[in-house]
Design a protein around this nucleic acid. Structure first.
Lengths: 132, 132, 132, 132
DNA sequence: GTGGTCTAGACCACG
DNA sequence: GTGGTCTAGACCACA
């Protein structure tokens, strides 16, 4: 799976990496049980420090996206539980996004359409739609 | 309008303030043309640093939510243009939120329902529904 | 509050520090709302690296013992919630301790007496007992 | 005796194995004089590295739980002496557990009840109670 | 080989 | 001033 890092971005490198792996899982490019590259390997590949990769992996592990296997390193977690604290954070982020949208004169229908489009883009079903 | 600051939050204070003002605009509690409190006044009321409030106002001004008036200070901007830059950032945030949701086994319908609920909560139309 | 670090110990420094702060809270020497020394200050005082202190504080924050205040640094958290995951980990540790005790021919009554003594020692009520 | 290894756990594999054998002795499923499987055999059965099993056995031998017999391999030790070194470590662990409990608002009575329950669970007397 | 820990020094965001 | 991020290099525990 291809990972792109923008060292000039305002979002921290470890967070960019974390996000891209989340995208990978959501789109199905990364399957449960699959092992991620070792921190050293990925750090070398991306040209960043191994501690930065380490922090990304620790974040993902904390959030339950991956699990640290003592033999295989980081592996994609299986059935992620739909816990409450995640739901709360998700709602907070969505309310803020909606509020910003409202300030920019985005109506409810338009907002929902954007959300739907984004969901499918995250799911990777965009390609299927294009094909279909 | 009541503003609450949590110094224990992970989100910076200036951003919390910025967000709450965005909420105020979205919900209609802050109307176009209305003047925000002076930097000094608000800083004193909230018990935070003057520079912090200043940064919030600058942020809001940059994003077009408020306009800086030499005499009246910061005033809520009128019809904010739905610019491309904002749309791009919105989509980025929503795709990430969607991806995280997918990882937590949230289906499209459920995600859309949450988005709809969040939009209405931001709009403040929840209260209207209760009344109606 | 006095903190002692043993660099020769098998337990990591950041964990020793974390434990001592937990002791401080349990014994009442550290009160809710009280601010801990800054990472730089404490690192200098203890003669260890600031990243090590940082990791301790991050651990304590994750576990809910302290909260990171954007103005005051790390502060002792108030009413800590008695959450389930803590209870589960506590039980796991106690079962293991009990099993080891049983292997060393410690009877139930003796084990309970030790536990009671340890609780009071942690609480700091030992001194009161001596005085009373 | 069934042994379960979780390679995703934070506790090292050799320690998990060591703990489970301690549990086996405490519960009486492993009796003094009984021989443990050979290092090679157990490693193969559990699908783990030979060196890992070796480390567990060495650990257990160091602590006096098992004795290494040249012909029979590792055998469960008989009456393990209640040495001071063990008692000191036990107290250290219990004080820490108690301190954490106090921080989570666990009162003395509740803590003792948990300890008692854990002791019986380790002893395996829970089943006897159910039967009786 | 893997990740975990510790140290060290730098820059930046926040207040 | 504070903590957060990133880099760098070292050693150790684990498997």
């Amino acid at each position: 799976m291809l990972i792109q890092i923008d060292t000039l971005s305002v979002t921290p490198i470890y967070e960019q990496l974390r996000n891209q792996i989340v995208f990978g899982i959501a789109s199905g490019r990364l399957s449960p049980g699959e092992a991620l590259p070792s921190v050293r390997r990925l750090a070398a590949d991306l040209g960043i420090n191994l501690h930065t990769v380490n922090k990304s992996y620790a974040s993902l592990s904390d959030e339950g996206y991956v699990a640290m296997d003592r033999r295989k390193g980081a592996v994609i977690a299986g059935g992620s539980t739909n816990n409450e604290e995640f739901a709360a954070r998700l709602v907070d982020k969505l309310i803020l996004a909606a509020a910003e949208g409202i300030c920019h004169a985005i109506k409810e229908k338009e907002f929902i359409d954007i959300c739907k489009s984004c969901y499918r883009q995250a799911k990777g079903s965009v390609e299927h739609q294009i094909i279909a």
